[in-house]
Amino acid sequence: MKSLAELAAIRAKMKDRVVLREGQGDIRVVVGMATCGIAAGARPVLSAFVEGVASEGLSDKVTVTQTGCIGICQYEPVVEVFESGKEKVTYVKMTADKAKEVIEKHLKGGTPVAEYTIGQNQ
């Protein structure tokens, strides 16, 4: 059973590390989670980013957040990637599989996956 004791263990483990998380995160991944995004399948996309960033050990560098309607509902699920000093990258019609590829090539590798960006999907 996932007991409260296990939760307390997480607290103990994080004691020294939590401070490091604050103020970090050079890359911000924002997933549109309004009615339009949710209906188009944004939930599994968000889960793929949250789980992928954790499992790839990118948590210090990447934060994943949710936002409301971005205004381009016909392209949902929409994901925006903000990186300091670089131009924003907007991915459209995302899926969990595409998210995994973005984690690998863009968040880890540093090169946006051009074929999923809005520029190539109009």
């Binding site: 409260l4 939760l7 997480i10 607290r11």
Partner: peptide, 23 residues
């Protein structure tokens, strides 16, 4: 249980929540 210093959106905590509900 987590106290003020551990946020609920910590990946380990989210994994625990999912596992707890699944069980």
């Amino acid at each position: 249980v987590l106290g003020d210093e551990v946020p609920l959106d910590l990946p380990d905590v989210l994994v625990w929540i999912r596992g707890n509900l699944e069980e």
